[in-house]
Write a protein that binds this DNA or RNA. Structure first.
Lengths: 264, 264
DNA sequence: CGAGTTATTGATGTTTGTCAAGTCTAGTGG
DNA sequence: CCACTAGACTTGACAAACATCAATAACTCG
């Protein structure tokens, strides 16, 4: 195990409490994915019928808001993939989040009245913009809208914590494996194919997101290929096949090739 | 500079957009702190008058909720300091957040219906529990309550991103300096003294929070003392004096001792 | 086809983790 | 009040992981 495992004493007692996190079987995962995809579709429908949304088509590289701009709208991704770029006062730049269909963008702007990062499209897609003040008003009238909004913010907090966990506890190879698993899961939970995925990010961007250099990312990918956990499509090295997502995930979690990931 | 600075090309153009993040002068910082402290007091007053809160005194080590428990309440810290402990399915344990007076806890539970981490008190304090369903109902009646809630969730997202930024872009020493600055800022923005602060965490916990080992934390602290950026109180090594928070902050940001942090 | 970007791979150096003393502190019981 | 002890902390020596530097290959787009 990597780094501090000092709290081992308290973990044993909580095995029971973790029951809610028990691994789903492949079958139930698939059902869950469809359910999740439906939930997203429903959420989008609810939004488009209850509040005024401005739809906008974006192409790779387009920005829907920038750091420091006055906060006014929240954005929901109908299709495409976005990255959130945070830039610190001293010029460090960091990919702090990835967004897929159904995800909201701009939450961080609510607290301070200014957007806290740049939202940049990584391929073509469609974004819906919603004025925050009108959304608030709609939420007051329509409780289910408020619930939707809270769940989205909560999910973002959860995801961000998973990032921290990965950054703090996993070695480079596992972090890259975890990243690919996350990407695949994100697609899967939206009902998209995951046996062949296209990472629309350069090695440098992946490295930045994972706190690694581009060379380390490249080496990690090569290693994953050698271990047959992933493989590249014939042409190009952006298209990745994942023969067994479970194997990849357990590699990420244990930081090594796991024999029999289906064991409890 | 540490690690990838690949996006330098795009940063220059956005200097203007960053105007909202311009550094405050010490005087305005102090005013801001008082304002912030008042805002927290006001928020607590609003809550206690509009919704039913259960108050509970906690001592160091007490837990107000645990990973996997069914989500039902949100919690607000009236006093004391909490840590949030996330434990992954495979047993990795991670401090994913620190909470001070006025902070909310439990947001991550909204999305999945179960708490996503343990909330553990690090010293004595008072927590207010609020049923989430009654809070939702109150929010629908009372828009200012909803705004309050959204701002709190947004602030948590912002803070979490700052963590990621620190983890990904700063070397060990700077990360520790950044951590101490963050702690001091957290106290300052609540109107508390910051020239002498008590970190109620062991080196192991700090290391876990920062993705470092306890030895590295210890060495970093020793180095900060050598560089006169901090100093320990006579007895014990938990009480830290910060002669100049600005110097410490610029050390964190530049990753080295900065001459003249007041320069633009 | 050729220029420029992106990716891979190797050689080397630095940072940080690991292991191992040893010190300090607070708390316990004689 | 004074050992005694257990946990927290510090420091050094060494090893491992990762960053850096550099050379080359592959792909993209004109």
């Amino acid at each position: 195990m990597h780094r501090s495992d000092l709290y081992a004493s308290s973990t044993a007692a909580q095995g029971g409490a973790l029951a809610g996190l028990a691994m789903a079987t492949p079958a139930s995962q698939h059902a869950e994915a469809r359910l999740n995809g439906q939930r997203i579709a429903e959420a989008l429908r609810l939004l488009s019928t209850t509040v005024d949304v401005q739809r906008r088509i974006v192409r790779a590289g387009d920005t829907v808001y920038q750091t420091g701009q006055r906060f006014s709208h929240l954005y929901i991704l109908n299709s495409g993939i976005f990255k959130l770029l945070s830039l610190s006062a001293d010029g460090r730049e960091q990919v702090v989040g990835l967004k897929f269909r159904g995800d909201w963008m701009g939450f961080a702007g609510i607290a301070k009245g200014h957007y806290a990062c740049d939202a940049v499209a990584m391929d073509t897609g469609e974004v819906w913009a919603i004025r925050y003040d009108t959304l608030l008003a709609a939420c007051a009238r329509q409780p289910e809208l408020m619930v939707l909004l809270h769940e989205a913010m909560s999910a973002e907090i959860v995801r961000e914590r998973e990032s921290v966990l990965s950054l703090c506890t996993l070695p480079a190879d596992a972090r890259v494996a975890d990243f690919i698993s996350y990407w695949a899961d994100s697609l899967a939970s939206r009902g998209l194919r995951t046996d062949q995925i296209t990472l629309c990010m350069t090695r440098a961007e992946i490295g930045n997101y994972l706190g690694l250099t581009l060379e380390t990312v490249s080496r990690a990918l090569s290693k994953l290929v050698r271990e047959r956990l992933i493989s590249f499509a014939q042409k190009g090295r952006r298209d990745i096949s994942i023969p067994d997502i479970g194997l990849l995930r357990s590699y990420a979690q244990r930081g090594q090739t796991a024999a029999g990931h289906t064991l409890q």
